[in-house]
Simulated assay, not measured.
Amino acid sequence: MSETGPVSADRPRVLVVDDASLVRMYYRGTLERAGFAVDEALNGIEALERVLTSTYDLLIVDVNMPKMDGFSFLRALRSREPTLRSIPVLMTSTESSEGDRESARAAGANFYLVKPLSEDVLVAHAKALAGRRP
């Protein structure tokens, strides 16, 4: 069961990892309207715990968070068993330099987007990376 109730097997599951409650709320609402089941984590440590106990089709991960940032979380995730290494990751940040994009790729992100994200951009990338049509 997700935080919003039972999850249908045909709904792609997304974990949104961001320390900003307004960002999580915006992503949740947008993705749920698009047919995704959404869980949330406040930082990389909480996200790692969730990923180790649940199955996700996509992770949307912020870079700058307390306790464990997005890069550290992603490196920890990608160093684990193959099933965790293969989960698609969309990394987001307000940082827009090419160095930030390179750091995201080096950590194992599949794609990097600069915030703020429009609903259309968020849903299009989520659908493409989850590999399913919600």
Rank of each mutant, 00 (worst) to 15 (best):
E81W: 10
G44L: 04
A41E: 14
L48I: 15
R105P: 02
E102P: 03
L15I: 05
T94K: 03
D19A: 12
S72Y: 02
D18I: 04
G35R: 06
L74H: 04
S97Q: 12
G99I: 09
R75I: 08
S86H: 08
I60D: 01
A47S: 05
R75Q: 14
L84W: 13
L48K: 06
K67A: 13
V14G: 05
T94M: 05
P116D: 06
D100E: 11
N43W: 10
M68F: 05
T94H: 02
E32S: 12
V23S: 05
S21N: 14
T83Y: 02
L84D: 06
L22Y: 11
I87N: 13
A104Y: 03
T55P: 01
V61E: 02
S72N: 10
V38Y: 00
A107K: 02
G108N: 05
R33M: 14
V17H: 00
R33V: 10
K115L: 10
V14I: 15
A34R: 04
N110C: 11
T53V: 13
G29F: 12
L90M: 08
M65R: 04
D18M: 07
Y56Q: 05
A20D: 13
V14W: 03
G108M: 06
P66W: 12
S103H: 09
G29R: 15
P82G: 06
V63A: 01
D62A: 08
E98M: 11
M25Y: 10
T55D: 13
M65V: 07
E49D: 14
E32M: 14
Y112A: 03
S72W: 01
A109H: 06
E95Y: 08
T92D: 00
N64H: 13
Y56N: 04
L52Q: 15
V51A: 02
I45N: 11
S118R: 09
N110Y: 08
T30R: 02
E102K: 11
V89W: 00
E95F: 07
S96K: 15
G44V: 06
V63G: 00
A47G: 03
Y26M: 15
I60S: 00
R101D: 03
D100K: 04
A107M: 03
A104Q: 04
R24M: 09
E81I: 04
A20S: 14
E98F: 13
R105F: 14
A37Q: 09
G99L: 12
N110E: 11
L90P: 00
E32G: 07
L117G: 05
G108T: 07
R85M: 14
S103K: 11
E81L: 13
N110W: 05
N43F: 06
R28C: 09
L77Y: 02
S54D: 12
L42R: 10
R101W: 07
E81C: 07
L58V: 09
S21V: 15
A106F: 07
P66M: 12
P88A: 06
A34L: 10
L58I: 07
E32C: 09
P116A: 07
Y112G: 01
T53I: 10
S93L: 00
V51Q: 00
M25T: 14
